[in-house]
Design a protein around this nucleic acid. Sequence first.
DNA 1: GGTTGAACCAATACTGAAATGGTTCAGTAC
DNA 2: GTACTGAACCATTTCAGTATTGGTTCAACC
Lengths: 234, 234
Amino acid sequence: MTLEARNPDNTNRVLMQIRRMIDSGDLPEHPRLPNERELSTRLGAGRRAVRNALEALEAEGLIWRRQGKGTFLGLPPDPAGALVAEIVPASDPLSVMEARLYLEPGLAELCARRATGEDVERLRALADRVAASGDADSRELWDGALHRLIARIADNRLLLTAFSLMDEVRMNEKWQRDRQRARSAEKLALYARQHRKIIEAIEARDGPGARQAMTDHLNELSGNLRASMAEDDG
Amino acid sequence: MTLEARNPDNTNRVLMQIRRMIDSGDLPEHPRLPNERELSTRLGAGRRAVRNALEALEAEGLIWRRQGKGTFLGLPPDPAGALVAEIVPASDPLSVMEARLYLEPGLAELCARRATGEDVERLRALADRVAASGDADSRELWDGALHRLIARIADNRLLLTAFSLMDEVRMNEKWQRDRQRARSAEKLALYARQHRKIIEAIEARDGPGARQAMTDHLNELSGNLRASMAEDDG
DNA sequence: GGTTGAACCAATACTGAAATGGTTCAGTAC
DNA sequence: GTACTGAACCATTTCAGTATTGGTTCAACC
């Protein structure tokens, strides 16, 4: 045998193909990528080439992998998440939004103090994915990853756990997730601008600016949530 | 057949027998009791009688039961405790103080918005207790109660859970509790003034003022902590 | 150097049987 | 009616065995 064994730049070819898969977002089981063996056969490359490509994507913070589990889009879950889920209190959408308003601006401020250049690159990559996402599911995925990365970069274990607490509740309350979805292209463009502004302040090490930008962003989300709830009541 | 079906006070007899088992402590797998069916046959009673006895013991807090799991001596495991246990080794006094600085000012602001006249009275009573305490232990106790009440009045379950988490971690960091103790009468007087200022802002429904007053207070505590740590290093 | 294919390792998920507390019901004895 | 027994069934959890998946190593090929 010894079919084709040479494809000098297969790693890069596969990398770009997987990048396209991520961009288009058409995955059989959405947040999860096909396993390495299947990617290998489907893309006509060795498993080594596939793994090289995945390693690059993981370094960029676009995917995460776990032995025995699989490869997934976004950021890895907080290790304390399982424990956190045990104590999440029941909350209504408005109080969850209130908690976000009181937690995340502070996290953005700390993030601005502590982010490295590499961190900023990752934040940008995630913000780009939010903007490039065609469907609401992908947007939600990447938006969640962006906010979580800010919380992680803030680098305070207790505050990160508090964030996870809030995030768990938010994820569990599926009934109201639709409400937080942008209803128009204008809103989407606004969110993209707000994300950019937050990241720019972080890059400039402007803590108060990052805090303010995050506050503005969440106030916008909060307003939309209230409007959507009032709409249903009326 | 229909052997003995009457044992008019079987529940009580079984209850006492199980009590003896617990007292003597000779259980095959120690913290765990034999399952209900086995107890039933071994003690010559119906399962109903055994369950009645176990219900009484559970109400007393001597045992706890979980479907599919078993019956065990002592109190049920506390999920929050497990979370705290995981966070404590990964956190140092400064990061806990940082979390306080990012959580409590917001709680004070919410508190100012939501406190009733009765709430303010209770806050004042606690602040008086702090000021009147003669020893460091009781000061710590009442000071903790004051800050916790502010968090409760803020009336957001998520933020309250986050605060409780932080509070428990703080309590668990025994190695550094001495450091946070005021070292002089001047400091004590300053803390008393700061507490008063926080409560006055809350009473005046001045959210930003309460936030600022709490920030000032925590910054003072933070400065003392740093000074005490630098002292030990030098 | 990079690539391929194959095998093996280690962590995780999955499946099905068994164990366990929770519940209901008919029957029995007082 | 009240209390107890026995049996059946339900819901949750555990456990053991299997399959899946990423992680690693190796020989061979260009």
